[in-house]
C-alpha cells in the first residue's frame, strides 16, 4: 500500500501539545483514506486543535481524501482550532481548486511558513 502518514506531536515544539504535524506521502484514495482518518482520530483524542498537514509528498488525492480533509476542518473548527495545508503540488492544487476546497483552507508553500503561522498557545 503506497500511502503513509507520519505524525509529529507538538509540531516540533513540546510547548504546543495542541498541535500536530501530519506528513503524508503516496496516494490518498478510497483504499488509504481510512489510515489518515485513524491518525486524525488519534490526534482529536489527544486534544489536538491545530493540524499542519504536509502534502508535499502526496502524489494523488481523490474525493475520498477531500472528504477527510473537510472532516478534519469541521472537527478542529468545533474546538476553535484550524487546519493548515502545506506544499500542494500542481496535481493536488488542481483537484483542490476544481472542488472549491482550496478556498476552505489556509495553504502554505513550506512547512516552515505553516509552523510560523501557528498561534502562540
Amino acid at each position: 500500500m503506497n500511502f503513509t502518514v507520519h505524525v509529529d506531536a507538538g509540531s516540533g515544539d513540546p510547548q504546543r501539545p495542541w498541535a500536530r504535524t501530519l506528513v503524508l506521502t503516496g496516494e490518498l484514495d478510497h483504499g488509504s483514506a481510512s489510515r489518515l482518518q485513524k491518525a486524525l482520530d488519534k490526534a482529536y483524542a489527544e486534544d489536538a486543535r491545530y493540524l499542519v498537514i504536509d502534502l508535499t509528498g502526496l502524489t494523488f488525492c481523490d474525493s475520498t481524501g477531500i472528504s477527510v480533509f473537510l472532516g478534519a476542518r469541521r472537527a478542529v473548527a468545533a474546538r476553535a482550532g484550524g487546519v493548515l495545508l502545506v506544499g500542494l503540488n500542481s496535481r493536488i492544487e488542481r483537484i483542490f481548486r476544481l472542488t472549491g476546497v482550496a478556498r476552505a483552507f489556509a495553504t502554505y508553500p513550506t512547512l516552515r511558513e505553516a509552523l510560523a503561522a501557528l498561534p502562540e498557545s
Binding site: 474525493s63 477531500i66 472528504s67 473537510l70 476544481l98 472542488t99 478556498r103
Partner: peptide
Amino acid sequence: SDPGVGRLRGRGLWLMGQL
C-alpha cells in the same frame, strides 16, 4: 451539482463533469 465544501461526501459525479 457542486455539493460545496459544507458537505463532506457526494462530489464524485459532479467532479467527473469537471474533469
